[in-house]
Design a protein around this nucleic acid. Sequence first.
DNA 1: ATCCAGAATC
DNA 2: GATTCTGGAT
Length: 307
Amino acid sequence: MTDGDGEWALPEDTEDVRAALVEWYEADHRSFPWRETTDPYEILVSEVMSQQTQLSRVEDAWHAFLDQWPTTTDLAAAERGEVVGFWSDHSLGYNNRAKYLHEAAQQVESDYDGEFPDTPEELSELMGVGPYTANAVASFAFDNGDAVVDTNVKRVLYRVFGVPDDDAAFEAAANDLMPEGESRVWNNAVMELGGVACGKSPDCDAAGCPWREWCDAYQTGDFTAPDVPTQPDFEGSRRQFRGRVVRALSEHGELALDELGPRIRVDYAPDGSYGRDWLRGLLDDLADDGMVEVADGSGSTVARLQE
DNA sequence: ATCCAGAATC
DNA sequence: GATTCTGGAT
């Protein structure tokens, strides 16, 4: 066995464990608009927006996005720059995800004749759709997914059943636990538990956690959670300046280097250490990522969002 | 200060 | 394995 494998097993009375959670979820849970649709496109948009972004900040953006591009046909026909601009305007971060979503819509149009596939395997072929999102869309749209494994699920399995901090172990445990053919309610319920009862600072009694009687952590009082990778500081980071570039180009359409520079850094000086060369480096990276186009004219260089 | 329904690319 | 983005809540 590899390092980190401890003694662990799911309870014998699995059916009771399952029933307790589903009953708890169905009695009361948070209301999100994407829980009231089974449209795979609407579900996908909510899932992509939710990656690394707090749910409370996704709701308005989700409504606005679907208002602007109601179907994959509409989104596929949009220009990439419009979609990236929307992402930036709504402060959704990681605007590569806007590019992926746009491309996924084009794949659905071209590869699937506008109709979403309904298996996790096929959904995984869409750009920006990994294991988590494939199972989420398959579950919430078609009730046809495997267990989702995200940081919430890992934290719950780690605390309640002592599943070791290992991706393969989490996936196996999550699927063992999930009742066959009930992925929609089950995956909603598990993530609801991780969100309202078993967050970083747990709230077992107040939230009426249905798994207290089976929970290792509740018995021992040790609510340690798996390590989450720590992020580098955002303030002053390259990411921050990339984000400002995208926002400025979305707002103004097209800008020359020396018009753009001062909007990115107040200390921009064309020949300074943060000047044209530095800015050009940022723009070339963004161009490689498919976000920005840089055009060298005679004497002046201009940048704009791609397409 | 740290965290948040991940995934692709190099 | 490191990088990509944002701001409100805690």
